[in-house]
Design a protein around this nucleic acid. Structure first.
Length: 296
DNA sequence: AATTCGCCCTGTCGGC
DNA sequence: TGCCGACAGGGCGAAT
């Protein structure tokens, strides 16, 4: 489940490889992943060079241009989406053949299998591969000036990374209500980029129960939550993301933040601070873990 | 109008 | 051992 730190890690690692590359061909083998456009809209990327990769929340925006034309390719990784880079000279490897040989890890940096739904082939021979077993990912393509108006991106709140305490507090006062704390944190129109892992981690750091009503937080606790969201995201980023199941870097390697999680995935285990057994339940429709003693 | 719920999708895991 | 239901969850549209 790639959230802000995972998507930002991908952005940072992909950009040096992609920038300056010119698109030769785009192959989409699962057309329903492309939203709001016919599959042939992807052909408009041909001949354009990658200028940069931007990110808002969990969305990557690949900017392409050739001096007269410009297009944006928006990628949301959903639950299980993976973006990997195969450099010129490297071969894409059929995953089935990898498994047969038994010599290589099942998931290599540029494995191609039935879950590889998009391939962007560049003039250099390099390839961007999008693999997504659960197909919750989404692709959007269009002119840069119209991309922000698309329903998905237009509703996003400010990117969660770097939101100051003052701005967070003001926004909280606007969004708080009968909904619980975690529901507000997960609301992408509140802040963009916080998902299930980092919402739980931030609540733990702030000493706030995820299921507490968002309207009851005192000013001091809102400030604490603001700082906790930042530190949870920053720690995730420093650790190059959380590999709980599917997340991999563009070179196929894994993140390290799973070793640093205090609550997510630790239901039934002792709290790292007080030793109390961590509780697990459903909050805001998501699996949620918290410490009944440290969080109130 | 605001909020919750059901659905999409498939790999993995626990139980029988 | 093998089958099968339960579970995971981001985001959207339907229902309340």
């Amino acid at each position: 489940m790639p959230e802000l730190p995972e998507v930002e890690t991908i952005r940072r690692r992909l950009e040096p490889s992609l920038v300056g590359e010119t698109v030769r061909e785009v192959i989409l083998t699962l057309p329903r992943l492309l939203e709001g456009a016919k599959p042939h809209a992807l052909d408009e990327l041909r001949g354009l060079s990658c200028r940069c990769i931007e990110r808002t929340g969990k969305y990557l925006i690949l900017q392409f241009e050739d001096g007269t034309r410009a297009r944006s390719l928006v990628i949301h990784l959903g639950m299980s989406g993976q973006l990997t880079w195969k450099g010129a000279g490297q071969e894409t490897v059929d995953r089935f053949r990898r498994l047969q040989t038994g010599l290589e890890k099942p998931l290599g940096p540029h494995s191609v299998d039935k879950h590889t739904h998009l391939r962007v082939v560049f003039e250099s021979g390099g390839e961007l591969l999008f693999r997504d077993p659960r197909t919750f990912g989404r692709l959007l393509v269009g002119r840069p000036e119209t991309i922000d108006a698309l329903p998905r991106l237009g509703k996003l709140g400010p990117d969660a990374l770097g939101v100051g305490e003052k701005a967070f507090r003001e926004r909280w006062m606007e969004f708080r209500g009968v909904r619980c704390v975690k529901a507000v944190l997960l609301d992408q129109s509140f802040l963009a980029g916080v998902g299930n892992i980092y919402a739980d981690e931030a609540c733990y750091e702030a000493g706030i129960r995820p299921g507490a009503r968002s309207s009851i937080l005192t000013s001091g606790r809102i400030g604490k939550l603001a700082r906790s969201v930042q530190s949870a995201l920053e720690r995730g980023l420093e650790n190059s993301g959380t590999t709980f199941r599917d997340f991999v870097h563009p070179d196929g390697s894994e993140g390290g933040n799973q070793e640093d999680l205090r609550v997510y995935g630790r239901g039934g285990k002792p709290c790292v601070s007080c030793g109390t057994t961590l509780r697990k339940g459903v909050v805001a429709g998501r699996g949620t873990v918290w410490c009944p003693r440290c969080q109130s």
